[in-house]
């Protein structure tokens, strides 16, 4: 194929002229438009940095999202973790999960498959939070709308979450003697299916939070439930 054939816009002028008349009007890239786009990007960076500082400083006083790993406090043997306890598989979906806001399906690294349902969005900020931590009840509807309309596995960055989880392993199980035993990447207890499953849920949580905050609404006090059923997981 010649270069021209790879760029038909330059040669197929008849069709190009027709299609140009079908496009909606566009905005010229004026200095004002460029400046506003640059400000948008800068705001995203600064919002993210402010949120990181807020999360780091106030973790103990802000109501945490309900979607949690579900591992703390569960008893495991140190050398032979019974992963079936982690998958939380029950024959029935919870009542809220029978009418979820979102349902996603994904494959595990070991070949198993999961159906994850999300819903029961709540807005419940800590009334005793510091005065400078803003909360907004619109967060609930914004999160619910996002769950209902977004392609969650497209917007959730599972790979980046796995990278982050490996950088800072906060996954642990409780040994018989009560000590905390890490089971993340690089440990003897590493389980790729477990890691991936947790990463999916955390990445979705981050995507929801980012979406709400990108609308100018603080995510303080926002929470939602999740329940998954997996088959073929490495247990």
């Amino acid at each position: 194929m010649t270069q021209d054939k790879d760029h038909p816009a330059g040669t197929d002028r008849e069709l190009g002229a027709l299609l140009a008349r079908g496009a909606r009007p566009t905005t010229e890239a004026t200095t004002e438009v460029r400046d506003q786009l640059a400000e948008m990007a800068a705001a995203i960076v600064s919002t993210n940095q402010a949120r990181s500082r807020r999360r780091a400083g106030l973790i103990s006083v802000i109501v945490a999202p309900i979607l949690v790993l579900g591992v703390a406090g569960t008893a495991y043997a140190v050398t032979n973790i019974d992963w079936s306890q982690l998958w939380h598989n029950t024959p029935e979906w919870a009542e809220w999960a029978q009418d979820p806001d979102a349902t996603v399906h994904y494959a595990l690294p070991g070949g198993g498959t999961c159906e994850l349902r999300l819903g029961e969005v709540v807005y419940s900020p800590d009334p005793n939070r510091p005065a400078d931590v803003a909360a907004d009840p619109r967060a609930e509807q914004a999160a619910r709308d996002f769950l209902r309309t977004a392609d969650l596995l497209t917007v959730a960055d599972v790979d980046a979450m796995i990278t982050a989880m490996r950088d800072k392993d906060e996954n642990w199980a409780q040994a018989d003697d009560g000590t905390a035993v890490p089971f993340g990447y690089g440990t003897d207890n590493y389980n790729a299916d477990v890691e991936y499953n947790m990463a999916v849920k955390q990445a979705i949580q981050v995507a929801v939070t980012d979406h709400v905050e990108s609308m100018g609404i603080p995510s303080t006090g926002l929470g939602f439930q999740s329940q998954e059923q997996c088959t073929g997981a490495d247990q």
Binding site: T26, A29, R34, L37, A38, M40
Partner: peptide
């Protein structure tokens, strides 16, 4: 984003 922002805006505006 500074470079392709105007392109993205037109991409969505047309559609």
């Amino acid at each position: 984003t500074g470079e392709i922002g105007p392109e993205l805006l037109r991409y969505f505006q047309r559609r």
